[in-house]
């Protein structure tokens, strides 16, 4: 389990010059660093920025990008937007749920995978679409999904689905 290290958080705070108005950026960076917002980092940020903890808690709960529970090393987003849905996205999601024994929004106990379902990733022509650690996989089938899961396991991953994760 990751322990939050105040030095890292201090660096992040310094980078944003301890600006109260940068709260969201700061929380985003903490989220990337730890793959969630550890409670003690929120307490720390509240103290350092002199922002009420209640406001930080409110912000952390408002945006989907923040998680209060540790997320897995690999983030799997299965698209259930209209186009992907009619092309069988639901079946792919169920395949992942079965294989990993988690529900959408949950993380495997070994902190390897987090599963989430999303509504349209803007690549409908490729549907059903799955994004794993920022890589788009189109025309997914249950079989392909299975293979993808076993090849991802153990790999590095970054726990976020951002396109900047080029390889």
């Amino acid at each position: 389990m990751l322990r939050s290290d105040p030095i890292k958080v201090k660096e992040i705070l310094k980078h944003y010059k301890y600006e109260q108005s940068s709260l969201i950026h700061i929380l985003q960076d903490i989220q990337v660093e730890y793959r969630y917002l550890p409670k003690e980092t929120m307490l720390f940020v509240a103290r350092e920025l002199k922002i009420p903890l209640s406001r930080i808690y409110s912000v952390a709960n408002f945006y989907n990008a923040f998680s209060l529970k540790p997320k897995g090393k690999h983030l799997i987003s299965v698209c259930l937007g209209t186009a992907c849905h009619v092309r069988g996205g639901k079946r792919i999601a169920e395949e992942v749920e079965r294989t990993l024994n988690v529900k959408s929004g949950e993380t495997t106990p070994d902190l390897e995978f987090t599963l989430e379902t999303v509504n349209c990733l803007g690549a409908c022509a490729l549907g059903p679409v799955v994004v794993v650690d920022g890589h788009y996989y189109g025309q997914m089938t249950s079989l392909k999904m299975k293979k993808l899961l076993s090849s991802s396991k153990g790999g590095r991953g970054n726990g976020k689905n951002e396109k900047d994760n080029k390889s």
Binding site: R55, S58, N61, F62
Partner: peptide, 10 residues
């Protein structure tokens, strides 16, 4: 001046 509580979630 305490801000002890807030609206949480959506």
């Amino acid at each position: 001046g305490k801000s002890a509580i807030s609206l949480v979630g959506r």
